[in-house]
Nucleic acid binder design. Structure first.
Lengths: 225, 225
DNA sequence: CCTCGGTCGAGAGCGGTGCTCTCGCTCGAT
DNA sequence: ATCGAGCGAGAGCACCGCTCTCGACCGAGG
């Protein structure tokens, strides 16, 4: 059955709220995001917004999921499965950084300190791991193409099975050692971006682009790509 | 001239405020830190606290500097200059992670999203780089002990001179390539800790301690330690 | 010793926040 | 056409950061 007029109106207003909230997020950041201000700019009274989002945190959760999805889509688009593994890796990393630089407040919402008291609901997980899935696929494809050195088997039992599935699936060249390196490289990607965005590199790195490229190539080397 | 009674009283109350604020930080986090609540618990009226801290952000800045100093001191204590480079590296990393796990909210204040509108004042810098200085010294000592492979000279001009000084000083085995790796390893250390603390590893890593150790050893290997 | 200036805490108050509750209106499915 | 569900408005609660004023105190200089 097609959506009723009411449902369409509701979806439209919900979208207006999230759009305005996202705009406000881009200017004042997550902690400055005010439900009342969104309502004001929308010509509504604050209590009316609660018809659409039960609380400010729910609105933030919506923005978080949207952010993860936007970033994930960016990463997926940047991955060219026909390219060489190391180049795929670098391209995805660059795309992630580009999105982060273009949406700093949204990035901070995703990868900065968790907001006040709340913890990410379960429904953020699928969106949150999309970047990781892309990177995992790069790793797995490289393994299946025989472009990964043999596994050493030094580290075992630190990675969950579900994650192992994402990180390339089953292959002789993939063991927990190389998977752990994958997780390290994953977190290092965001560590480098966070340091750049949050100002920890200020005064230390003079050519941020060149530094990032070199760093990501180092990480690719660590993975054997 | 010795501190007058007034000055001593002032210092004492200032310390009480920061202590209470730190306690509140540990329970409700940075965004939940309320100047009024601190005043309440101190038996003061909120306006009185403004005699000691001009604004809430100034109180936060005080906590940030204290946090950097506490973390820096922890890192310095953990470094045994007589140990092997790779072991020194691992020991410092472990100490940093240990402090972060013991003070998650303070850690989030230091390395999470920057707070609302304000930017870190200049006086946070000396405290902020203490961990980096320790890690840089490990690198420099290794170079001077001849335990670092020869430099390749592939990357140049991306690291500022002041940072090069911190990252081991002058030595043939230290060029911008290895210094850039130093910065990468530095940010990766905090990237891994942030991911663990902020929940991005939840469901992926089953043995956090073992994973962290393996990751930091990988980083040490990347540096040639 | 006494006075006077600086420091302090208290209190009231401003504008803002998230959130709740109630009240009517309006729209749309039956 | 009717009746109920959904909606927006409004008032209100408790809290926040921050400002201003006022009275009390304390201690250093005359």
């Amino acid at each position: 059955m097609p959506p009723t007029a009411r449902e369409r109106a509701r979806a439209e207003i919900t979208a207006e709220i999230t759009d305005l909230a996202r705009a406000q997020l881009a200017t004042v950041g997550a902690t400055g995001l005010s439900l009342r201000a969104v309502a004001r700019e929308l010509g509504m009274v604050s209590s009316a917004v609660y018809r659409y989002f039960p609380s400010r945190d729910d609105l933030l959760t919506r923005l978080i999921i949207d952010g993860y999805d936007a970033l994930g889509a960016t990463a997926e688009e940047a991955d060219d499965p026909t390219a060489a593994p190391a180049e795929r890796w670098l391209a995805v990393c660059r795309a992630v950084r580009g999105w982060a630089l273009a949406h700093p407040h949204e990035y901070a919402l995703l990868y900065g300190s968790p907001v006040p008291g709340y913890q990410a609901p379960r429904d953020t997980v699928p969106a949150a791991i999309r970047v990781g899935v892309v990177l995992g696929r790069v790793l797995g494809d490289a393994a299946r193409a025989g472009r990964l050195p043999a596994a050493s088997g030094a580290v075992t039992g630190t990675i969950s099975e579900a994650t192992a599935e994402v990180l390339g699936g089953e292959h002789p060249a993939l063991d927990d050692t190389v998977r752990a390196r994958g997780l390290l490289a994953w977190s290092s990607l965001f560590g480098a971006i966070s340091f750049e965005l949050f100002g920890h590199f200020t005064g230390a790195v003079t050519d941020a682009d060149a530094f990032f490229d070199a760093a990501m190539r180092d990480l690719a080397g660590l993975l054997g790509l």
